[in-house]
């Protein structure tokens, strides 16, 4: 089993993710410069956080149109796992791998703090090790994280069934007060139709060891590993 973390110019959480995968979760992980492209040996790919291309035009817009995204699409097409974190989530939305868009926060400033999330779907490749409805603590750090689903109609309805995480309060209630960025229905993690692509704004790699204040995020990576073990 082999993971890849793609590095774009301006990615800045790439090494954190690779460290967690290699050293904490113990899975072989390569840092892959976007021009190199993915290799067929990769079973899973992470698009890390950062500011690819300086967030010019729109966050994630330019990276979404680079050639390596064709590799990512191919990997997703053959059932591999694709996880986009923060800027990676914006890239996945911009490339159409998940529906909707992440745009400027309702109050347009950068927010960097711990957030409480409710796990909305417990049996996906990314959430196998969570209980559905569980409340977890994973930090957010973004200015463009407000999720907007596609316009009314079928596409919007479909999103409801694909929500992985929602912002919530300590009791797990999804309220306007517990929504830090004004996301539609507090959505901050959304899956592709096939369920093997997840875009999430919170940073699980920043909550993967107790010394960092929370290890709730580690189970995202461990779930991916478990899923690939079971399905290999």
């Amino acid at each position: 089993m082999r993971f890849a973390v793609i590095q774009f110019g301006g990615s800045n959480c790439d090494r954190d993710v690779a460290y967690v995968l290699n050293e904490v979760c113990g899975v072989d992980t390569d840092l892959v410069w976007y021009k190199e492209g993915l290799s067929p040996v990769h079973d899973a790919v992470i698009l890390p956080g950062g500011f690819s291309y300086g967030d010019y035009l729109r966050a994630g817009a330019i990276a979404a149109r680079t050639r390596v995204m064709d590799d990512v699409r191919r990997l997703a097409g053959r059932g591999g796992l694709v996880l986009g974190i923060c800027n990676g989530a914006q890239i996945l939305a911009e490339s159409g791998l998940v529906p909707g868009v992440f745009t400027v926060n309702a109050y347009p400033k950068f927010i960097c703090r711990h957030a409480l999330l409710r796990v909305e779907k417990g049996k996906t490749p990314f959430t196998l090790l969570y209980q559905e409805g569980e409340v977890v603590r994973i930090p957010i750090a973004h200015r463009e994280g407000r999720y907007i689903p596609p316009a009314e109609g079928g596409a919007r309805k479909a999103v409801t069934a694909r929500v992985a995480f929602r912002f919530c309060d300590e009791k797990g209630e999804v309220t306007p007060q517990s929504n830090p960025n004004g996301s539609h229905e507090n959505i901050t993690g959304v899956l592709s139709a096939g369920g093997n692509v997840l875009a999430m704004m919170p940073h699980p790699e920043r909550a993967s060891e107790e010394i960092l204040g929370s290890s709730d995020g580690r189970r995202v990576f461990d779930s991916m590993i478990l899923f690939l073990e079971k399905n290999s």
């Binding site: 817009a61 149109r65 911009e94 868009v101 907007i148 689903p149 596609p150 316009a151």
Partner: peptide, 9 residues
């Protein structure tokens, strides 16, 4: 359609 605008918004 391919780059400058995002059709969602």
């Amino acid at each position: 359609e391919r780059l400058l605008a995002n059709p969602v918004i």
